[in-house]
Nucleic acid binder design. Structure first.
Lengths: 204, 204, 204, 204
DNA sequence: GATGAATGAGACTTCATTCAT
DNA sequence: GATGAATGAAGTCTCATTCAT
């Protein structure tokens, strides 16, 4: 809707940029950054190679833009989830569900997302990572805040550092999602299956 | 000790192979598979390129050998930890500690390990991954067994699926280790800091 | 003439391809397939290596294209010669002359041609050879037909198998041409010098 | 028998050298000079690479020795044939038969022989060729001499230059042998099938 | 004297990037 | 502004040759 108010030329450019990123995402997530050529991306997006370079300084730049935008969407969805819900319990449920939702809706991204957050592409070049990690950290801090709130309000017991609990919940979601990615088992439909692990301790 | 009994020539070859893998590990973990050339590895290992190819059929082969051997060490250590300890609680403590120990002693590997298990190198080629993931799954199943035992013996309460709890514990360790890798904060000295999250539920 | 009607871009590409093949021919015929590098060909043709690969999938492909096109020209010229001339005698004269003409005009090719038909490049890879040999066989069969016609019409005596006579005539031309290639002596100006051997038997 | 009189050490060396050349011949004729490595030859001959270099200065040297020795055998056999037989007719028959015999008994060599005499390995490096061609020329001159004798003695008519007739006969044998090599048809059992072409002219 | 591990130059090929049209 | 042909640096891998044992 915002786009409609832009000059036609500008709107066109945004659509083109979007098509390029979409093509790149499909290819990167399928074959990995290093196994995709600019030629390939250009062909899939139905542009000339030169045009790609009008939008992105180089391959790495294109990659960063891609990751960055996807990360934006993810983190925005997660932050929203954490801000929605009557009490902290509801917020956590929303978080778990939102994380599942957004990831499963964008399987292609997830592969890249994990790649970015867990590993190999420390590499591609620094810089990107730190930016993404910062946003991960923000989500984590927000999650921590929910736990702190819950503890302060007496909803949760203070059995461990709130940050640690936040870390635990998030990493558990990731583990489930990762398994889902591999086709091992589905992501739990009810968030409670994941949350139970934390709510009801193993020992009295 | 076994090596001492081998013919000198054989011992020499083992040492050379080790040096090559060490050089490769250092470079791969720093810059990523695709950003390291065989030339580079050869130079770091102080061999000629051709010599590398006497030991490994090609770059991918070298990479697989590297990952495979490191994964062996890791998984062996973890399996050992899970088999050591008077009761299930002790076994879990050992697991958490062993995981921390072995990873922190091999920071370079961990980067590659995560890369393998979380992402990017879906790519490099299938085949390796599945092999490694299978071994991860074995560890996870062993961890699940500890929880099942503990639940059956009344040590733990059955508040969630044992496999889910196992997944939760393992992924939490990974999360901590990952943060440590990034220099954010140390891996907890006492395993209890991690275990507490599970033992004492957040709600009554 | 056809080329003139093509779009400028297309004409340009044809010229480039031609230049590349010309450079390759010169080098291959001088030093042999294995002793010429793509770098060398590129330099001689005044292109970058990468450009070569835009036109030919790989070195072998370039080689095959080269051989194939030259063989086309040769065989077409020979077939034409055999179809031109009042009687069989004239056709044979034309053949001998055409063979000499076309070969001597393309000395570089001839080296490769012989290489293809007599030897070494059994090797380079099958496939090409058989294709070329088939075309040689066609020419030979056509030559045989001329002899058969001549024998049936009473122009020639049936002193031997027509195919054998065809083989004999062709191989004699080759022998002369080969000697000429080596600078030993000239290819006979008059085709009769070669033909005489066959027409007038050594014995009564 | 001569070998028996040599010191044991010397006899041993000759046998080793022979084994190396045999291995090389088998491999070269199957795959071509450039597609065979010294390693391969060494393995087939059951020696170490280094040992090969004790006997031959380098790969080319080994190749030249191989070709040279085989050519010796061939040309000796041909020269013998041409010197054996009551009259010129018998000598020619012997020649045609000997050429067929010696080639078919050494199919592997023939491939290399043709490669040497007709093409590609102009290349490998000059030097060898000229030496071989000289010996070919000697045979040809000897063959010419037979025709001259035959003409002078009235056995043959002087229908063409004796050298040309010699060339014709030899190249016809080669053509038949080449076809046989390719499995197209057998080399004529009776030399007369080849000789007839020359003896009884096509025209009165 | 034989061995074969080690060497490293050099071959083929790809692909990010530029720039004339 | 878009195009895509051209570029050439750089990567992987092979193999003739050497030399310490």
């Amino acid at each position: 809707m915002d786009e409609l108010s832009l000059p036609r030329r500008e709107r066109e450019r945004i659509r083109q940029r979007h098509d390029m990123l979409a093509a790149a995402l499909a290819l990167f997530s399928e074959k990995g950054y290093h196994n995709v050529s600019m030629q390939e991306i250009a062909e899939k997006a139905e542009f000339a190679v030169g045009t790609l370079y009008k939008f992105f300084r180089n391959k790495e730049d294109l990659y960063k833009a891609l990751i960055s935008e996807q990360a934006d969407r993810f983190h925005e969805a997660l932050m929203n989830a954490l801000s929605t819900g009557e009490d902290e319990l509801a917020q956590l449920r929303n978080y778990v569900q939102a994380k599942g939702q957004v990831f499963m809706d964008n399987a292609a991204c997830v592969r890249l997302y994990f790649a970015e957050n867990r590993g190999a592409s420390f590499n591609i070049k620094a810089g990107l990572d730190s930016e993404i990690r910062e946003r991960c950290e923000l989500v984590l801090r927000r999650l921590e805040a929910v736990f702190i709130h819950g503890m302060n309000s007496g909803l949760f017991r203070r059995t461990a550092e709130p940050y640690h609990v936040a870390l635990a919940l998030d990493s558990l979601c990731n583990a489930f999602l990762f398994h889902w990615l591999e086709g091992r088992h589905p992501y739990p439909e009810s968030p409670d299956i994941i949350l139970n692990v934390f709510f009801h301790g193993l020992m009295d």
